[in-house]
């Protein structure tokens, strides 16, 4: 069946993968950071849906990331993302600065099996100017001048997130956090850590079905209680801001960051 260990899940993220990750409040699978570092995966292309934080910053700091597509990168109340900032300054990662709805639009195009999706706004911004992969076209249905931006489909190789509940068949409950479903619909494969995996079929409870991602989209799941910590999981536990602050402080320097990796994952794992 689809239930596996965290280490087995990491096999779904080989070097060079385009990896989609959710925003800090929407179920970040922090439990998978260690196994991904351990697997040796590198040259990852991150897609932050629609913004990144601690998870992306650790992968960047450990030298595992080639490019980042995101609308923002932040540790929230704990301030800026230190490894990201260093990598930007040194040019170590390729940046694809976006705006939140452009990332949602790219995923939607992938979900629909269409090559692109039009999106309002953006015209006249430097965000657009630095995205040669985005185009401005004339609205083909308008008789008057109406320019609109089109963004290409974003098809992640793998989407990874942490959910409150899953069943042994691979159905995953995400409730109101539908961006997680959007990620799964768009990605070629989806791996999920869950607070709890139950034996019975979640489709048996009609109240849950509207919030379910059906197993057809899910490749593998693993149980990881507390798997979003130090981030919170909506409806379950709050973000540990102190832990984020401590990371922010340590990761200010490369040595401090190496110490954080060593303390947290038992090894420095810097590529």
């Amino acid at each position: 069946m689809v239930t596996q260990t965290l280490k087995q899940l990491a096999k779904f993220v080989p070097s060079g993968s385009r990896l989609a990750l959710p925003v800090d409040y929407a179920g970040v699978s922090m439990a998978m950071v260690g196994p991904i570092l351990e697997s040796g995966a590198r040259d990852l292309h991150l897609v932050c849906v629609p913004a990144g934080g601690l998870q992306a910053d650790i992968l960047i700091g450990a030298g595992r990331v080639r490019s980042v597509e995101t609308s923002a990168m932040t540790l929230g109340e704990a301030g800026g993302a230190p490894c990201f900032s260093r990598a930007v300054k040194s040019g170590a990662i390729k940046l694809r600065d976006a705006t939140c709805p452009a990332i949602h639009a790219g995923l939607l195009a992938a979900q629909k099996g269409t090559p692109f999706q039009p999106i309002r706004g953006l015209i006249g911004s430097d965000v657009l100017r630095h995205r040669p992969d985005w185009k401005v076209i004339q609205n083909p249905f308008s008789d008057t001048g109406d320019k609109i931006v089109v963004v290409p489909a974003i098809i992640p190789d793998v989407a990874l997130f942490h959910a409150p509940l899953a069943d042994a068949h691979g159905n995953v409950w995400v409730g109101r956090r539908k961006e997680l479903a959007a990620m799964a619909y768009a990605a070629k494969s989806t791996i999920v850590t869950a607070e709890r995996i139950v034996e019975h079929d979640l489709f048996g409870d009609e109240d849950l079905t509207a919030g379910l991602i059906p197993a057809i989209y899910i490749d593998a799941i693993a149980e990881a209680p507390g798997g979003a910590r130090p981030y919170g999981l909506w409806g379950h536990y709050a973000t540990e801001t102190d832990a984020l602050m401590r990371y922010a402080e340590l990761a200010k320097t490369e040595d401090g960051f190496a110490r954080y990796l060593d303390e947290t994952y038992g090894q420095a794992f810097v590529a």
């Binding site: 995101t70 609308s71 800026g80 300054k89 940046l95 657009l128 630095h130």
Partner: peptide, 17 residues
């Protein structure tokens, strides 16, 4: 840009909203 001296989080939804 892109190798800005000071990097802030990013544009978020501003380029749309």
């Amino acid at each position: 840009y892109p190798q800005t001296k000071v990097r802030w989080p990013g544009s978020f939804g501003s380029a749309f909203l």
